[in-house]
């Protein structure tokens, strides 16, 4: 959890705004450090967390969370965290074997055009589990869905429309129905101006998700080029649905990722330049 980001977003683990869909996007840069922030943030705020880790192994998330002061293994044992390790699940589908004991979540790999229904079912059953208070089990807050990299689904052959459907269904279930939150990471690498056919998938996905979300954190490299001390800039964009109309608010910060967190500062005020 990055405290500086919390103050920028004026959020704290004690009070989670219900029904928020936070989109973390990047372009020719890497925004995955923000996923670790949200993972530790929601675990601290005692929400029930469903994590779809599609790009990295559990050990990776666990090692990073450890540095941020949260233990994923403990959270898993206590039933707070439902973790899906996409890499592990995919192997049994990609290399078919006699003893098939895999879960259904990665079923889309068998036939990508079918869509992500099985994955949605997994999310739903994981999130719904929070309502039931079993004997002795701790009570957890509203469910939160975290997806590390939906764009990898495109690489696996699912088309952008299916991913948008998936996110819409998840939003309806998790954000609207269960009053929880949702965080998705989408990665894009083309130039903004490029309007090529090949770009369609990732670009359409980014646009579609930006339309759906209530808060967008967009990470980019520095427009002035590579710098060792400033890793990039993040654009924070709120969409205010209630209250002051369709007014959107934008803020731009530069950031640097450290070993155990990240610092955010207004443009041009890095300690490296001042």
């Amino acid at each position: 959890m990055f405290t500086e980001l919390n103050s920028i977003l004026s959020s704290s683990p004690d009070s989670v705004t219900p029904g928020e869909f936070i989109l973390v996007s990047d372009r020719q840069s890497d925004a995955s450090f923000l996923i670790h922030h949200f993972l530790s943030f929601y675990l601290r705020s005692r929400c029930k967390v469903v994590f779809l880790g599609l790009v990295q192994s559990f050990r990776h998330y666990s090692a990073v969370s450890q540095r941020l002061g949260v233990s994923l293994t403990q959270a898993k044992e206590k039933g707070q965290l439902v973790f899906m390790e996409g890499l592990k699940e995919s192997l049994s589908v990609l290399i078919p074997q006699a003893d098939n004991t895999e879960s259904q979540a990665m079923n889309f790999l068998r036939d990508p055009p079918v869509g992500l229904r099985s994955l949605y079912e997994f999310v739903r059953s994981g999130a719904v589990g929070s309502g039931r208070a079993e004997d002795g089990a701790e009570e957890w807050g509203p469910p939160v869905l975290l997806v590390d990299d939906v764009s990898v689904l495109l690489s696996l052959g699912v088309d952008a429309g299916a991913v948008l459907d998936f996110s819409h269904y998840c939003r309806a279930a998790v954000c609207s129905q269960m009053k929880g939150n949702m965080v998705m990471l989408v990665r894009c690498n083309g130039e903004e101006e490029e309007e090529e056919d090949g770009e369609e998938g990732a670009e359409a996905l980014l646009k579609g998700l930006t339309h759906q979300c209530s808060l967008n954190l967009h990470v980019q490299g520095l427009p002035t080029g590579y710098c060792k001390d400033i890793h990039g800039q993040v654009e924070v964009c709120w969409k205010r649905r209630q209250g002051d109309g369709p007014h959107t608010q934008r803020n731009l910060f530069q950031y640097k990722v450290h070993d155990k967190g990240a610092s955010f500062f207004p443009r041009g005020t890095s300690s490296a330049v001042l």
Binding site: L87, L91, L94, P112, L156, G157, D197
Partner: peptide, 23 residues
């Protein structure tokens, strides 16, 4: 080709490769 038929074949393979190597 500009629009390859097996557009996702290599990326799917690399995903599987990563899964194998990580474990």
């Amino acid at each position: 080709h500009d629009k390859p038929r097996h557009r996702h074949a290599l990326t799917t393979f690399l995903y599987g490769l990563r899964a194998l190597l990580r474990s």
